[in-house]
Design a protein around this nucleic acid. Structure first.
Lengths: 114, 114
DNA sequence: CAGATAGTTAGGCATGCGCTTAACTAATAA
DNA sequence: TTATTAGTTAAGCGCATGCCTAACTATCTG
């Protein structure tokens, strides 16, 4: 897990933690303060802050401090990036499958290994 | 990271590791043997096997052993699940944003907190 | 058969990660 | 001003994770 270079690395790392995913799912229903997020999960407030820092570097959230309360907001762009990555892998695979099927249709050979 | 209950947990955990993501991206181009996957990454073969075990429990891959070579295949269904989860969070958020915009249009108030 | 090839299992090491408590700052309320 | 509320920073603990080497099994090849 060291030195994350690409955005998709930080993104997936951020979302791999159940606690952080819970925060994201909560934020999908609307913005929230740091302490209100802490009451949702059975975690101390500093733990929540550490998760927020990771979510922020992954560009999944944005925070803004007004007075003494920091409001956390979801940024849907990162989720879109995740969808794009998954779709890219999947479509590439499915295109491959189509070609393979066409090839097998042509040749009628079922046990063909390179 | 303990006791993963839901599929999305195992899925995101599996994909959070750069090495495993590299394997998935390689498999998107077509099936591969275990040892051929090991030559792609600067890793020992046992390490690759451990990653494959995790990818398999996350239903991201399928393996089949013929003779002494085990062929690893990508299963696009899990990727589809990932897309669905991300899309669900994103659309929920965007729907919320639309409502908020409509509300602000109506009331012309910009600093309104619950 | 002997040797090479492909994979598997076991054990152990080092580092990273999530979490906690404690101490501190800054803003609001009484 | 004092007390409370909201957040921040620092330090440290324990466990999980990723990786390795070594030893072993099973399949092919000459």
């Amino acid at each position: 897990m060291p030195n994350y270079l690409k955005p998709i690395d930080t993104l997936l790392h951020a979302l791999s933690e159940p606690a952080r995913r819970a925060i994201v799912e909560r934020l999908a229903t609307g913005p929230a303060s740091v302490s209100s997020l802490a009451t949702v999960t059975p975690m101390s407030l500093p733990a929540v802050m550490q998760h927020l820092a990771i979510l922020e570097t992954a560009r999944l959230i944005e925070t803004q401090k007004i007075g003494r309360v920091r409001t956390v907001t979801l940024k849907p762009g990162a989720l879109k990036d995740l969808e794009s990555w998954a779709a890219a892998q999947r479509t590439q695979w499915e295109r491959k499958l189509d070609h393979l099927a066409a090839y097998l249709d042509e040749t009628e050979i079922t046990s063909k290994e390179k």
